[in-house]
Write a protein that binds this DNA or RNA. Sequence first.
DNA 1: CACGCCTATGACATCGGTGTCATGACATCG
DNA 2: CGATGTCATGACACCGATGTCATAGGCGTG
Lengths: 363, 363
Amino acid sequence: MATIYDVARTAGVSPKTVSRVINGDGAVKASTKQKVQKAIADLGYVPSTAARLMRSNKSGLVGLITGAISLSPDRSEASGLPDLFIVQGIQKAMEHSGKTLLIADTGGHSDRVPKLIRTFEEHRVEGIIYVADYHRRVELPTVSDATKLVLANCYDDAGTPCILPHDFQGQYALVRSLIAKGHSRIGYITLTPGHEATTLRTAGYRSALDEAGIAFDPALLMPAGVDASDGAAEEQLLWDAIDRLLSLDRPPTVICFGNDRMAMRAYGILRSRGLSLPDDISVAGYDNYKLITQTLYPTLTSAELPYAAIGIRATELLLSMIEGNAPPTKDPILVSGPVVHGNSVKDLPTPITHLSSIGRTTK
Amino acid sequence: MATIYDVARTAGVSPKTVSRVINGDGAVKASTKQKVQKAIADLGYVPSTAARLMRSNKSGLVGLITGAISLSPDRSEASGLPDLFIVQGIQKAMEHSGKTLLIADTGGHSDRVPKLIRTFEEHRVEGIIYVADYHRRVELPTVSDATKLVLANCYDDAGTPCILPHDFQGQYALVRSLIAKGHSRIGYITLTPGHEATTLRTAGYRSALDEAGIAFDPALLMPAGVDASDGAAEEQLLWDAIDRLLSLDRPPTVICFGNDRMAMRAYGILRSRGLSLPDDISVAGYDNYKLITQTLYPTLTSAELPYAAIGIRATELLLSMIEGNAPPTKDPILVSGPVVHGNSVKDLPTPITHLSSIGRTTK
DNA sequence: CACGCCTATGACATCGGTGTCATGACATCG
DNA sequence: CGATGTCATGACACCGATGTCATAGGCGTG
């Protein structure tokens, strides 16, 4: 590959002058500039970032660590890779920064992270974004002070700057919209208990009920997520949870699910019980994973998990930190998403519910 | 950041000796080695790949260009990012090569490709894999001779080495398995006509029919894919296509769809017409996109598009070329996938069909 | 015309590693 | 005991770019 010296010799000037032409700094006579540019074109010269980095100590690289790309096929295909949208957001936000994004993948093995960080440091990245596959706590090895670090979709105990989805607000807004449509018996089949998302969303669910003066009924709330990616067990749990809800004296008029995939399965289960959607029962999901929400029939109402926005916010924060600014806050930055309405939720005749509830209240 | 000189000074040896310890070459006394390793640990020294590259001219980098990660949200979410599995395959195959994968993304704009290749060349990548989002022809700018290039899921007129899915074989095997289950009226609602995949799969469909002695009925074959990602138009086309198939004098007993997403939509459409799956009508998809095939109820029979395998083969080919081997063939390398059976295809009472067909043949 | 100033350009050192070769201290062998 | 070989280590140049400083020529001004 041609070097700056080859170009200089071909153009009959010094390497420094070629450098000036490439970088557009210093004064170069128009005729000289043309000679140099011709030589560059003729030789197919491409400057080496490595050599440039050695002098400037500015790599122009930003590292991204994720498991989104090469999660083990089973898990990734089951979950539908929603966290990949975070990576998309990062790409988008990085596009005009002039920096190059170096993406590394854990391949599902978090013990590979230190090695990836090491590789990034060898390449002298200016910052690293770590993306988790779901909202959770992580522990990362310490990185050199010169390397800025931002967490997306996760947080740690060290107070590393992080961007998180506003799970409380999401479920709260979703349930609020269901109440506005006249529902008051609202079932909620959650993801695995103990997960951040489950805890926060359950709080949002209860908060929306409270606000509307609807008493919380524990029988309407149950988990159906499992830790292992055991499809069969998950299916059984889901079937059982739906069965228990439908067997209640006062069954729910709408069921919320922990994610869109559970809701998608529920479509089949509910129909196999002879129920029609949304006339006999309404359904809502979570994530707004469009492949599901928009392709299902009827389209699915869901709370959007703002993955792309998380990625964008994380990138903006990192770039700002690279420029020398301190993180604006020590608290996690929460990103909210809208409720996306499909046809899976029926409008109930509110007046009746309303009147009867008034009747009861006033009796 | 500490340099090799800092380490040398701290350990009281020459930089060259530190280099020897790091790379494990040359003979170094055990005591010296320990001193150096302690100095490295104390200083948190990480060698600079840039400086190393300057001497060795071996970057250890492989570039990957894809649109899989940051396709415009609409399209990506609609298509479900199956081509991402190619990237997964590449990651997996690259894992043990000792090389670092540099992933760049077109963001859906193919006019950005030259700039990305340029960036790769600045980093002196040893090879580039270009991944297309669907099986098609592409035109890429020429790259330096020193940079090896492999195409995955696409091909060009210049005869660049490429890996392609065996679309003919996939549809052939799928239809063959349907015939084996006793079906002979097999509807096929294809993707957009003119696409490589559509042409090849239609040939596979016809070939399987021919082989079984089933006459091809043009009324059973129709396209329902549209070029634009116009969800509404697609839905209407699909609805209409299904309607026409069901209105035939001898309607099909099974319908194949161009991809799993179309099949997923068909579930809703067929059910809204009062048909039950698979008792009244059988359905088959294409891609084996597990989020759909395994989550749908009943599970969907599909031909697997071997994306991961395409990525793996592409990587193996590229690594071999980097080592100086010539591409083994000038023809595209085709990768086949299996038929994955779900519960969406009913076993027909073959004996009757069989006897009646014998009756006809022998009369 | 001499002086200062600006423009255009080049010489040289430098960044952080590694390849080449040299060197000194021992060990081995005839 | 001297010649030769091996081991451990260091001096030095070099990879390809760029920052610093120097320099030569042209031009305006007193």
